[in-house]
Design a protein around this nucleic acid. Structure first.
Length: 835
DNA sequence: GCGGCTA
DNA sequence: TAGCCGCAACGCACG
DNA sequence: CGTGCG
C-alpha cells in the first residue's frame, strides 16, 4: 500500500505525470481507465481505494460480454491525481507512449472493498461514461514457479442490463473517444495538461451563433443499427450558448429568446461546463403530462414557463472544443454524461435515442400520438444546414401554412370559421392550399382572431385565390401568420384534405413556408447497415445466387421498408440455417408479388423449366399423379423470392418417402385476447408431457401469434398413425386442462383457450419452415428457440429479417443443433397410450 | 410474377 | 398482342 | 349439404 513503487519508477524531472500523494478518505470513489499506447497497447484500469488508485493493466481492454474474461495484471498503486492524466510519457521513461483518458466516473463496491481486494474477489458497480453496471475482478491462483509480484486477475462484466453480447460488447472498438472534456463535479482534481487529446476536436473560439442542423422529410424510416431514432418533439427548436455561466438561447432563425425562457437559461447556467453550444427543442407539458404544442403557446401568452422543458439532443461545442466533426454518437455520449450529472429533476432533459429498428420505433411513436420521429446517422458530423444524415419521418402529414385569410363563423362558432391557407411555390407566389376549420378551441380561436386586426387587406395575397363557394365570406389578411396544420393528404389540385389546426408558429418566417415533399428514404439512407436497399428506383435487375432478381428495390414489406432484394439477401445469409429444413420436402408457398399487404395467394404446383433449380417431386396418390416441388439449394430459394414468395411451408415428410411422417408438429394458437404468458405456459406444459414420454421436442416462433413444437421422428409410420397419436396428445392436454386448451377448431373462438392444432400432421398438410419469413408487417421470421428462451422476452413476432442474422451471429450454439441428429421413434407402447 | 387464355 | 385471371386443399365442426 | 375455418 502506498506510492513508493510508483515514485520509484519515475523521474519527475522528465515526465509530466503527476507526483501525487495519498488522498484523504471520505469522498466518492473514482475510477479511471486510460488507454495507454505504450510498447504494447493496453488499458489501465484504476479503482480508487484507501487513498490511492489500485491499478491493473488490461491488455485487451474491458468487454461488455459477461462471457469474456479479460486478463488484468495488477500493477503498482497510482496516485488518485494520476487518473485524469492524458499526454505523452517521454521515450526512455517508464511506460513511454501516449496516454488517453478512455473512461472515468465513480464506483461503489458491492460488499467490503478492502476485504474483497484482500480475498481477490472484488465486486463493484461502475458509473462511468462508457462502462456501467456490475463488474468483478477475480484474482487467479499464482502458478507455481511464477513470480508472484504481478498477480493476474480477470476483469469480468457481470450479467445485468448493461451487459452486451457479440460485436456490441466490444466497447473498445466502438467507443474510442477521450472522456477528458467531460467535467465531473467531483473534487477539483486538476487535469494535468498533456495535449488534450480529443482527436479531431480542435480547440477554437466558440462561434457567436450556429445554425441548426435540419432534417430531411422522408416517407420511410431507414433500416440499420447506424440510425438513431429520437422523438420528434412538438415544440420550438432552441440552441443554447453557454460561456462562463452566461447563457443565451436562440431560436432556429437566430433570434435571441433568452428572455422568454429565463428558467431554462437559469438551469443551463448551472451545468458544469465552461462553455458549450447545446441544440434541442423546448416543449411544454399539458395537463395530462403529455407534450403539447398548444400548451407551449399558452405558456408564451401567459408568461408562465413553469412547465417548460428543454430536450437537448446535440452538443456541437464543449469547453472550447469544436465537436461538429465528431460523430453524433460521441457527441450524444458526452451530452448524456453532462446532463445526467444534473440528476433527473429540472427542466433540462437528455433526448434519448434508440439504435436501429427505426420503422418499429416510428410505429410505436405514432401509436402514442406523437408527431413522428427524427432518425439520425450515428456517424454523422454536425452540419449547420439541412442534410440527409438527419431524417424526419412523420406519422400523419403535418406542416406549416401561411394564413392569408379567414371566413366568417356560422352557428355557434365565434371569431371565425376557417383559416385560408397557402404555401409559396418555387416562383415565390403564394398558392392557395385549402382551409382549416377544426382543431381550434375557445382559446386558440380568440388568440388567432386577435391577431387579425392589423392584418386586414382588401385583395387576396394568393396568386390563385379561392373562388365561388370557397371564397364565401372570406376576409383577406396580410400573409404573415404561420399555422401548423395536420392533414390526411394533398389532392392533385394542391389542396389539403381533412385538415386540422395544430397551432400558430412564430419561429418560422411566412415566406419560407412551402409545400414539403418527402424524399424516398432509400436514396438518402444508403449508408445504413444490415439489410440494404438496392437504391435504384427504376427496375434494374441484380443477381443473387445466380438468380436474376427483377425489381430489386420493390418494397414488399411497407412497414419495415424491406425490399425484394432485402428478402433475397436475407435468405442468402440464412442459407445454411434454413436449407436443412427444406431438403426434399414438398413445399407450399405464399406469394405476394406486390407486397405482403396486397394480393397474396397459395401455390403448390409451379411450372418448372429446364433452368429451374427447384426440384420436382411426384406424389402418386391412388387416383392421379401430381407434381409438387422442393427447394434443396440456395438458388432454388432465391428463385422463389423472385416469384414474390414470402412464406415457405413444408410437408412433414421427405421425398421419396412422402407417405411416412418424419416429424410431428403442434401449433399452439392463442385465441384473441390471450396473453403471451398463456402461450408459453401451454408450450412448456406440452414440452413437459413430451419429456415424460421421452420424446425430444423443439420449439420455434411462428412469426404470427403462437409457437410451433416439432418432434422429429424416424419415418416409419403412415400419416394416419401419426395423426391419431398427435390427436391423442392434444386430447390428453385438453382433458387435463380444459380451462386452457381446446383441440376444436371452430370452437376456438370461444373463451380464452389455446387451440392445439394437431391437424398439420396429415398427408399434404404443411407448416411454416424454420427461418421462413411470414407475409406480415415487418417481415417476421419463424425462428427456432432454445426451450430456455420460452418466456416473456421472446414473442411470436420478435424476430424478423432485420434482426435474425444478428441473433444467429451472437448465439453460442444453434438451439436446434440436435434436431437433425435426433433419432427417436414412436414405439408401439406410446402409440397404444395415446390412440 | 408469370403463364395461359380470351378478346 | 394487350389484358385479365388463376395461382391449394382438405378435414373438421357447425347449422 | 354448404360454409367457415385453420
Amino acid at each position: 500500500m502506498g506510492l513508493q513503487q510508483y515514485w520509484g519508477k519515475r523521474d519527475f524531472k522528465l515526465t509530466h505525470e503527476p507526483r501525487g500523494k495519498v488522498e484523504k478518505s471520505g469522498r466518492q470513489l473514482a475510477f479511471y481507465i486510460q488507454k495507454h499506447d505504450a510498447r504494447r497497447l493496453h488499458y489501465d484500469f484504476r479503482l480508487e481505494l484507501q487513498g490511492t488508485l489500485k491499478s491493473w493493466a488490461v491488455p485487451k481492454g474491458p468487454s461488455l460480454d459477461p462471457n469474456d474474461k479479460r486478463l488484468a495484471v495488477e500493477v503498482e498503486d497510482h496516485p488518485v491525481e494520476y487518473g485524469t492524466f492524458e499526454g505523452d510519457i517521454p521515450k526512455g521513461q517508464y511506460g513511454a507512449g501516449h496516454v488517453m483518458l478512455w473512461d472515468k466516473g465513480t464506483w461503489e463496491a458491492i460488499g467490503d472493498p478492502v476485504e474483497g481486494y484482500r480475498q481477490g474477489a472484488l465486486k463493484f458497480r461502475l458509473n462511468g461514461v462508457k462502462l456501467r453496471g456490475k463488474w468483478a475482478l477475480v484474482r487467479m491462483k499464482a502458478k507455481p514457479g511464477e513470480k508472484d509480484n504481478q498477480p493476474n486477475w480477470l476483469l469480468i462484466k457481470e450479467k445485468d442490463e448493461e451487459a452486451r453480447h457479440g460485436p456490441e460488447a466490444q466497447i473498445t472498438e466502438t467507443a474510442t473517444a477521450s472522456v477528458s472534456l467531460i467535467q465531473d463535479d467531483g473534487p477539483a482534481l486538476e487535469s494535468v495538461d498533456g495535449d488534450l487529446a480529443m482527436e479531431a476536436a480542435p480547440t477554437k473560439q466558440m462561434p457567436d451563433l450556429i445554425k441548426p442542423q435540419l432534417a430531411t422529410l422522408v416517407t420511410q424510416a431507414p433500416q440499420g443499427d447506424q440510425w438513431f431514432s429520437e422523438i420528434k418533439y412538438d415544440g420550438y427548436r432552441a440552441l443554447a450558448r453557454i460561456e462562463h455561466g452566461d447563457v443565451k438561447i436562440y431560436s432556429r432563425n437566430g433570434n435571441d429568446w433568452t428572455n422568454k425562457w429565463k428558467n431554462l437559461a437559469g438551469a443551463l447556467a448551472k451545468l458544469p461546463v465552461e462553455s458549450a453550444w447545446l441544440d434541442g427543442e423546448v416543449v411544454a407539458f399539458d395537463e395530462e403530462g403529455g407534450i403539447s404544442f398548444q400548451a407551449l403557446q399558452t405558456s408564451f401568452k401567459l408568461g408562465n414557463e413553469a412547465d417548460l422543458a428543454y430536450f437537448i439532443f446535440d452538443l456541437p461545442y464543449l469547453n472550447g472544443h469544436d465537436l461538429t466533426k465528431q460523430p453524433l454518437k460521441q457527441r450524444k455520449l458526452l451530452l448524456q454524461t453532462l446532463l445526467e450529472s444534473q440528476g433527473k429533476q429540472g427542466p433540462l432533459h437528455f433526448s434519448e435515442h434508440l439504435e436501429g429498428h427505426a420503422s418499429e420505433v416510428l410505429k410505436h411513436a405514432c401509436m402514442h400520438g406523437l408527431e413522428g420521429i427524427v432518425v439520425k446517422h450515428a456517424e454523422s458530423p454536425y452540419q449547420q444546414r439541412r442534410s440527409s444524415d438527419w431524417l424526419k419521418v412523420k406519422c400523419g402529414q403535418r406542416q406549416e401554412f401561411v394564413v392569408a385569410g379567414y371566413t366568417d363563423p356560422s352557428g355557434r362558432r365565434e371569431e371565425f370559421g376557417a383559416l385560408l391557407l397557402g404555401v409559396y411555390d418555387e416562383e415565390g407566389m403564394l398558392q392557395y392550399a385549402g382551409r382549416v376549420g377544426t382543431g381550434f378551441n375557445q382559446g386558440s380561436l380568440r388568440l388567432i382572431a386577435s391577431q387579425f386586426k392589423t392584418l386586414h387587406i382588401n385583395n387576396p395575397a394568393f396568386a390563385n385565390p379561392p373562388t365561388g363557394r370557397d371564397a364565401l365570406g372570406a376576409h383577406w389578411l396580410k400573409p404573415t401568420l404561420v399555422a401548423e396544420v395536420k392533414f390526411a393528404e394533398w389532392t392533385s389540385a394542391g389542396r389539403i384534405r381533412h385538415a386540422s389546426f395544430v397551432g400558430l408558429r412564430d419561429d418560422k418566417a411566412a415566406r419560407h413556408v412551402t409545400h414539403e415533399t418527402a424524399q424516398p428514404t432509400e436514396r438518402l439512407a444508403g449508408s445504413g447497415e444490415g439489410v440494404k436497399n438496392s437504391s435504384q428506383s427504376s427496375p434494374s435487375p441484380v443477381e443473387v445466387a445466380n438468380i436474376r432478381i427483377s425489381h430489386p428495390s420493390k418494397t414488399l414489406f411497407t412497414d419495415g421498408g424491406f425490399t425484394k432484394l432485402d428478402l433475397a439477401r436475407y435468405y442468402e445469409s440464412v442459407a445454411n440455417w434454413i436449407l436443412p429444413y427444406l431438403k426434399d420436402r414438398p413445399l407450399s408457398i405464399v406469394r405476394c408479388p406486390e407486397g405482403y399487404d396486397q394480393h397474396c395467394f397459395f401455390q403448390k404446383h409451379v411450372s418448372l423449366d429446364s433452368k429451374s433449380h427447384l426440384k420436382a417431386v411426384n406424389i402418386n396418390t391412388s387416383d392421379k399423379n401430381s407434381e409438387y416441388f422442393s427447394a434443396n439449394n440456395l438458388s432454388a430459394v432465391i428463385e422463389l423470392v423472385q416469384l414474390g414468395v414470402l412464406e415457405l411451408h413444408a410437408w412433414g415428410s421427405r421425398s421419396p418417402k412422402t407417405h411416412l411422417a418424419d416429424k410431428m408438429i403442434f401449433d399452439l394458437d392463442p385465441a384473441p385476447g390471450l396473453s403471451w404468458g398463456n402461450v408459453t405456459e401451454a408450450a412448456l406444459l406440452l414440452h413437459g408431457l413430451l419429456e415424460e414420454l421421452e420424446l425430444r421436442s423443439f420449439v420455434k416462433t411462428t412469426g404470427g401469434k403462437g409457437l410451433h413444437i416439432e418432434i422429429p421422428i424416424k419415418p416409419e409410420h403412415s400419416w394416419e398413425v401419426v395423426k391419431e397419436f398427435t390427436h391423442g396428445i392434444a386430447r390428453h392436454l385438453q382433458t387435463h386442462a380444459p380451462d386452457r386448451f381446446t383441440t376444436n377448431l371452430s370452437k376456438k373462438k370461444r373463451d380464452g383457450l389455446i387451440f392445439i392444432d394437431y391437424l398439420r400432421n396429415s398427408a399434404g398438410a404443411t407448416a411454416v419452415v424454420p427461418y421462413s419469413t411470414r407475409a406480415k408487417a415487418f417481415a417476421p421470421v419463424a425462428t427456432p428457440l432454445d426451450w430456455d428462451e420460452v418466456g416473456p422476452e421472446v414473442q411470436a413476432d420478435t424476430f424478423n429479417i432485420g434482426n435474425v442474422m444478428t441473433r444467429l451471429e451472437n448465439m453460442e450454439s444453434d438451439p436446434w443443433k440436435d434436431y437433425l441428429q435426433t433419432k427417436q421413434r414412436l414405439s408401439a407402447k406410446l402409440l397404444q397410450m395415446f390412440t
